[in-house]
């Protein structure tokens, strides 16, 4: 089962290595990982999507909490969260195909970020499944390159995770 875990950490050098190392040495699977600074510049937020049963999730949370640089850890159920990933996809695109691809971009609310004689680069920020569909739609044109971030997540409504 997939779990989304938010980890607030001290914004020090080496903290990400400690968190990633913990997952590696205890054989926890990471699907995606995203890290960035929070409103407080001394605090970073790591969002991890991990795979595992309830026992594994409990151990992940407890072991993360033991790291001295970890300030707060929480896992969320899917319904609590608003999640986003960012993807940049460079697709083959002849001048004749431009209109089709622009219409796909419109339907999916993707942005046309770059264009060349024979390619087009589209940008989409959305939740994981939508990005998957987007990729499927573009595949027939010939995808040259995909660059994708890990999932970031924030609680829906007024609740927030702060230190």
């Amino acid at each position: 089962m997939k779990h989304t875990i938010s980890v607030l950490v001290e914004n020090h050098a080496g903290v990400l290595a400690r968190v990633a190392g913990l997952f590696a040495r205890r054989a926890y699977n990471i699907d995606s990982l995203a890290v960035g600074v929070t409103a407080d510049e001394n605090v970073s937020r790591i969002t991890i999507v991990a795979d595992g049963d309830d026992y594994t999730l409990e151990q992940i949370l407890k072991q993360l909490n033991k790291l001295i640089d970890v300030i707060k850890v929480r896992s969320f159920s899917e319904s609590e969260l608003l999640t986003r990933e960012l993807v940049l996809i460079k697709v083959n695109c002849t001048p004749a195909q431009r209109a089709e691809l622009i219409s796909i971009a419109k339907i999916t609310e993707a942005k046309i970020s770059d264009i060349s004689v024979n390619t087009i680069t589209l940008e989409l920020s959305d939740y994981s499944n939508k990005i998957k569909t987007f990729e499927e739609l573009l595949r027939p044109y010939g995808i040259k390159e995909i660059v994708r971030t890990g999932t970031v997540a924030i609680q829906r409504g007024s609740a927030s995770l702060t230190i």
Partner: peptide, 8 residues
């Protein structure tokens, strides 16, 4: 004293 040991 270590909650991570409980149930491990």
């Amino acid at each position: 004293i270590d909650p991570a040991e409980i149930g491990k």
